[in-house]
Design a protein around this nucleic acid. Structure first.
Length: 646
RNA sequence: GCCGAUGUAGCUCAGGGGUAGAGCGCUUCCUUGGUAAGGAAGAGGUCAGGGGUUCAAUUCCCCUCAUUGGCUCCA
């Protein structure tokens, strides 16, 4: 037996017999470690802990504390669920069952069985029962014909289809207890590691994600090595629900939807409208300083505009149906760019005029499919923080960088520290179909964007085949506190529309030249951004953004008159204050103000009025002592100014 | 658009083949209270809409609409 060297993460190296498993190595280090090992990274690839290592290797033992360890556990959990399902519903067919960010799912064809959410507890129980048997996950190589034969006998057409696409020689099966599945692995040593199970939901999902394929039943679940961790997770889900923008939006009276107005068409209540105004003011100030000019454009346009822009053939289905008027066809606009291009074209441009930056909070209408609507995050009427920058190739890098800097400034103001820029490029095979057919300009612009991203050191991820049809784009993905990930804003390069609109400027050599256009929307749309902010702040907006900054709470109605003077003083300092003059007890008034998440409460009784002071209570933090009205007002102003000076 | 769930008072929800309930909110009255809910009375519902089964439907069945968990999609 030959010896092999195993390099461990602490820098040490140990000798073992060839054929040693990660589990045995873990045991040689400590029993405790061995009890926690779920899988192992061998030379960078995640393996079963029971798999034999035959040559020198770098080893990283994976436990529940590693992302890959969790992933292994959840992958095995999907198999465990499949085993439980097969024993309860013999003959059902399995498609795919991968681990996901939190937990796992399995897509199943339930055949003639009726299956609903009510059946989940039964399956959880079975899974626990099977887990306790500590069945080992056994890996075995299977030849392609044997693999196909196995699933043909089970008449599982999904697995067969999957195997068809695999290379002979690399097909493996895993068996635990009485269940065998096609699987690359890796898996945990045995099912006993799974101690707590929660099946979360049942949903439909198309086979291979294609809406033309049959719909399968997808079961989502999550498992943990300890019951306590499952309890914590469920607690977290509860917390997330409390932050849901749809719930808070109602409670804080920000927005509403109405059947008579229509789905996906939000109505903004005064407090929500205030948020909009405040964000617009921020955008206008920021953009003015950055050399943007504001423009205004109508909400509809003739069909021809969208034919010229090239949008219509790509997006007709997601535009509201056209209107016929005076022999012409009109569309509600679903983007502002063509209108802005026409503004650019309205007056002749010299290179001396560039860059031209047109900004508008434009309202657009998109016919999102009914099932895609989601609170404020996906709507059919949206107000976009839009702008288009027309510049020369030489100016591009600087302009693009300036846009990125604007993003970063906003992130700082809003305390967004978890984000990633997603750099979407085209796919050469789809030129002329999904993308404008101009390979040279695609390459040129993609190179330019990549260069700026690298130079500015912003974290980014490059993804092919996700660009806009007219050029590469950067989407800003952010993560809300409750783990919801979405695209907040977008920054796109456009070389195609300047050509299709024949936008030109006269260059130094007195020649006509096409500008490059940058489409950008750092604050995305009001709808999505405010939806995000509600969840981000859990409804507790920072002072500068709060519709109601201060609420004055008289101890009794006797002091209402005196409080009106305080209210007046605060208003003179431009502080958004209100007076709760109801005949309620102070405890009730405080409770209501706390629930309305008003940042500051001023409690005013005989003592305060006599001494000319205010007693301050901060939302969520309680009594803050007292100050004179002037001191308090200046304190508020300073807090607001700090943010505005970022 | 597709699969599943849900729709009862302004809000959160209970109920159930014999024409409806709670808490909060709202209105009025009493109370004038010092840091998270004072007391009483009252108003408020075509049980999402339409059709069917039934002596009788808010309840059972079908369709539509809306919301929602996902899938697909997101210029």
């Amino acid at each position: 037996m030959s010896k092999i060297n195993i390099n461990l993460p602490d820098g040490t190296s140990k000798q073992f017999e060839s054929g040693v498993t990660s589990m045995q190595i873990a045991q040689s280090i400590s029993e405790g470690l061995a009890r926690n090992v779920l899988s192992a990274k061998v030379n960078g690839a995640v393996w079963d802990a029971n798999r034999e290592i035959e040559a020198d290797a770098t080893l990283n033992l994976l436990t529940w504390n590693d992302e890959e360890g969790k992933s292994t556990m959840w992958h095995s959990s999907a198999h465990l669920m499949a085993e439980a399902l097969e024993s309860l519903y013999p003959g059902i067919k399995f498609a795919i069952g991968p681990p996901i960010e939190s937990g796992f799912y399995y897509d199943i064809d339930f055949m003639e069985y009726e299956f609903s959410e009510a059946d989940l507890p039964k399956i959880e129980k079975k899974m626990i029962e099977l887990a306790r048997m500590k069945n080992v996950f056994e890996r075995k190589y299977v030849s392609k014909p044997d693999a196909i034969k196995y699933f043909e006998e089970k008449s599982d057409q999904y697995k067969r289809e999957l195997i068809q696409d695999l290379e002979d020689g690399e097909i493996t099966f895993y068996t635990q207890g009485g269940f065998t599945d096609l699987c690359r692995g890796p898996h945990i040593p045995h099912t006993g590691f799974i101690k707590a199970v929660k099946l979360l939901s049942v949903a439909g999902a198309y086979w291979r994600g294609d809406e033309n394929n049959p719909m399968l039943t997808r079961i989502y679940g999550i498992t943990f090595p300890k019951q306590a961790e499952l309890d914590d997770y469920l607690q977290l889900l509860e917390e997330a629900k409390k932050r849901d923008h749809r719930k808070l939006g109602k409670e804080l009276e920000l927005f509403t939807f109405d059947d008579d107005v229509g789905p996906g068409l939000p109505l903004w209540l005064p407090k929500g409208a205030f948020l909009i105004e405040q964000l617009e003011q921020l955008a206008k100030t920021t953009e003015r300083k950055a050399g943007y000019q504001r423009v205004k454009t109508p909400h509809i346009a003739k069909e021809n505009l969208y034919i010229t822009s090239g949008h219509l053939p790509y997006y007709k289905d997601s535009m509201f149906p056209p209107m016929q008027m005076d022999g012409s066809t009109y569309y509600l606009k679903s983007m502002n760019c063509p209108h802005h291009h026409k503004l650019f074209d309205a007056l002749p441009k010299s290179y001396k005029d560039l860059p031209v930056r047109f900004a508008e909070y434009g309202t657009c209408y998109r016919y999102e499919k009914s099932g895609e609507l989601f609170g404020l995050m996906r709507v059919r009427a949206l107000q976009m923080n839009d702008a288009h920058i027309y510049c020369t190739k030489d100016q591009f890098a600087q302009e693009f960088r300036a846009v990125n800097d604007m993003y970063l400034k906003y992130f700082k103001i809003f305390g967004i520290d978890k984000y990633i820029m997603r750099f979407s490029t085209h796919s050469p095979e789809k030129l002329g179909k999904k993308y404008v057919d101009n390979p040279k300009l695609w390459k040129e612009t993609e190179d330019m964007v990549r260069k700026v991203l690298i130079e500015s050191g912003i974290p980014y991820k490059e993804v092919a085949d996700e660009a806009a049809f007219y050029g590469p784009k950067i989407d800003v993905q952010i993560y809300s506190v409750i783990g919801r990930e979405f695209t907040l804003a977008t920054n796109q390069v456009d070389f195609a529309q300047p050509l299709s609109f024949n936008l030109t400027f006269t260059n130094q050599n007195n020649e006509s030249e096409h500008p490059i256009v940058i489409h950008r929307a750092p604050l995305g749309t009001h709808e999505r951004f405010i939806g995000f902010l509600i969840e981000h702040y859990a409804g507790k907006f920072p002072l500068w953004l709060s519709p109601e900054q201060v609420r004055i709470l008289p101890i009794s109605e006797k002091f209402n008159e005196g409080c009106k003077n305080i209210l007046q003083s605060l208003e003179n300092y431009d502080i958004r204050a209100s007076l709760d003059d109801r005949g309620e007890k102070i405890g009730k008034k405080i409770r209501d103000a706390e629930m309305a998440k008003v940042p500051y409460m001023l409690i005013i009784g005989e003592k305060e009025l006599d001494e000319g002071i205010v007693s301050i209570r901060k939302q969520g933090e309680g009594d803050q002592g007292s100050k004179s009205v002037k001191e308090f007002a200046e304190f508020i102003q300073q807090d607001v100014n700090e943010i505005m000076s970022i």
